[in-house]
């Protein structure tokens, strides 16, 4: 599964876009330009990028409260995302969704979801649509170690197996559900083993390694697209920051916090492709410069953008009431 140069560039661009975007979110949040909460994806870039790499706009994903990376990996535009996160007119959801509710139906992005465990049942439904229409496309539910304990997730796994739908459960295990560690809160030894107990194949991969995630996902897609029912993929990730931007993370020891940054998916990707001479460091740098410029411009534009028209307060509740 050797990726060609263009594909590698695409993966790098996606990961870096997520990185640059989230770093900028962190900064903007500190500046007070982002209302409410922001849960950033820093440290998990390889997971979302690897999972979405072979998906098309016709494949669908359901996401989580920590969904910016999934959005970007699925093709959402950063300009619209920044507008949305800042609650501005022209945001991807008109400023009505915010950070935790970014969705873009045209891109197969069925929504970030602020309810832990909210997405898996919905993704089962999306997969059911794909199955009934015999499209060959799939649905993916991003969940985490936290959502793995939710009844909705467990119900969805069983339902997906029973209905034999083309669906992949991705458990991004970043070790923490809010402030509580998965070591404590997940009774099972491993998320993938627990998923397997529902009657679907399951694998666990290093979520800091784009190539491992991508390879795991290829296997999952092959299984699912062949009409064999769902598949579970655990990606073991590292959450660089706290639950939300500004979380002092007192519940994590200083050693653990320092170690979290060592498994940096962006650096690992850069080192691996440059050392193997797959891409030149100049090429990687050029993309990084371009991506950061775009993200910065998007943020700046969003800061300057107008708030939504008050007249939109009561629109879009129903198609027709």
């Amino acid at each position: 599964m050797q990726l060609n140069r263009d594909e590698l560039k695409r993966a790098w661009r996606t990961m870096l876009t997520i990185r640059a975007f989230e770093e900028r979110v962190e900064k903007e949040f500190a500046d007070g330009t982002i209302p409410g909460f922001a849960h950033v994806y820093l440290g998990q870039e390889a997971s979302g990028t690897g999972v979405c790499f072979d998906l098309t706009d016709d494949d669908q994903i359901g996401s989580t409260h920590r969904g910016h990376g999934h959005c970007i990996a699925k093709g959402c535009e950063v300009e619209g995302m920044f507008l949305e996160i800042m609650g501005k007119a022209g945001g991807i959801c008109g400023g009505k969704g915010g950070s935790m509710h970014i969705a873009d139906m045209d891109k197969g992005m069925l929504g970030a979801n602020a309810i832990v465990g909210g997405s898996p049942p919905i993704a089962v439904g999306a997969a059911l649509t794909q199955k009934l229409r015999r499209t060959g496309h799939v649905a993916v539910a991003f969940t985490g170690d936290g959502a793995s304990n939710q009844g909705t997730t467990l119900e969805a796994m069983n339902m997906a197996v029973v209905l034999k739908v083309p669906m992949i459960f991705v458990f991004e295990n970043n070790g923490y559900g809010e402030f509580t560690s998965a070591e404590y809160s997940v009774g099972a030894k491993s998320l993938s083993e627990r998923a397997a107990a529902f009657g679907m194949p399951a694998a666990s991969v290093d979520g800091g390694d784009f190539f491992a995630v991508h390879a795991g996902m290829r296997e999952a897609l092959e299984h699912v697209r062949d009409g064999n029912g769902p598949y579970a993929l655990e990606t073991r990730c590292s959450r660089f920051l706290g639950h939300f931007v500004g979380d002092p993370q007192k519940y994590r020891g200083s050693e653990e916090l320092a170690a979290a940054r060592t498994n940096d998916p962006v650096l690992r990707f850069r080192d691996r492709v440059s050392e193997a001479a797959l891409l030149a460091i100049e090429e990687l740098n050029a993309i990084e410069t371009e991506v950061r410029a775009r993200v910065d411009a998007a943020a700046a534009a969003a800061r300057a953008a107008a708030l939504p028209d008050l007249a939109t307060l009561e629109t879009d509740v129903y198609v027709k009431y």
Binding site: P121, A127, T129, A139, T152
Partner: peptide
């Protein structure tokens, strides 16, 4: 949830 997901797709 699955019905909602099927509806929205």
């Amino acid at each position: 949830g699955a019905a909602a997901g099927a509806a929205v797709t």
